[in-house]
Design a protein around this nucleic acid. Structure first.
Lengths: 142, 142
DNA sequence: ATTGTTGCAAATAGTTTGCATTCTG
DNA sequence: CAGAATGCAAACTATTTGCAACAAT
């Protein structure tokens, strides 16, 4: 599983890369490098390898980076079915959003700016219902 | 200049804060902490103070953070006139985009998810005309 | 056999923090 | 004057890199 993906990118198929890709394939949400590393612990894959593999996969276009400015980078499959995220600023829970109002916009912008548009990132932040409840009771910790 | 902003946030007006805010007010594009620090060099404002001030201003809602995941955080005024960005992946040039197709979307999403939507971030990436030209000639460096 | 990939440890980059000092309201 | 803000240096966190050993094509 995932071998075909690695193969089709024209990079060597190694045990580590398969393992990393599997973690990502099995995840329902975008993961950070250290979350991926944690789920890999038994396999004895090195942290540097995780970073290098993620960088390679992102460069080859198999993964995309998401996440807020200044926060840990999250990685997810560059999915055919294009998804955006809604992130809870309290607990960091991530929800997927279906709509993507950008495709249309991007042609327009390419024309007016001369840029070759290669990607976009749309993220909404908010407070999820469960955190909202806690915030009402407790004084906000930290 | 900018004093009224600080005042209205209910925080103390100091020389450093005024200087930092002025740099931001005068910038036409979002700036990173170190860019702000650089433009402040003569004023002898400390780097920590820059970070602390930016954090405070962002917390109070006067600034927003933008920028790609994993890259340096950029700060800009939270403008009434809501702007998004188009960033060149080669030279990091930043262009502003006028349209914001999100406002409408966010009500819809708030309803369906129960989240209280507090913000959003939309960014497009691409290659600017000038970098596109260079990429044609040179082999891409690095 | 050759070249790309990995592990390890050390280096960076960006950002945050503790504490004594200084300044604003 | 009291509490908030600053400077400085040191701590952190996330990420990257040099190099020798190793594995995939």
């Amino acid at each position: 599983m995932g071998i075909d993906i690695l193969d089709s990118l024209g990079i060597k198929v190694t045990k580590q890369r398969r393992a990393i890709l599997n973690v990502i394939l099995q995840a329902e949400v975008p993961l950070s490098a250290d979350e991926i590393y944690a789920r890999l612990a038994q396999d004895g894959t090195n942290f540097s390898t995780v970073y290098r593999t993620l960088a390679t996969l992102a460069e080859k276009g198999a993964l995309i980076k998401v996440g807020e400015a200044g926060a840990k980078t999250l990685f997810q499959l560059k999915d055919h079915t294009h998804k955006h995220h809604l992130i809870c600023t309290e607990c960091r829970k991530v929800l997927e959003i279906d709509e993507c109002p950008i495709e249309a916009l991007s042609h327009e912008i390419a024309d007016s700016t001369g840029f070759k548009i290669t990607g976009h990132c749309l993220e909404l932040t908010g407070v999820c219902p469960s955190c909202a409840r806690h915030l009402l009771k407790d004084v906000k910790p930290k």
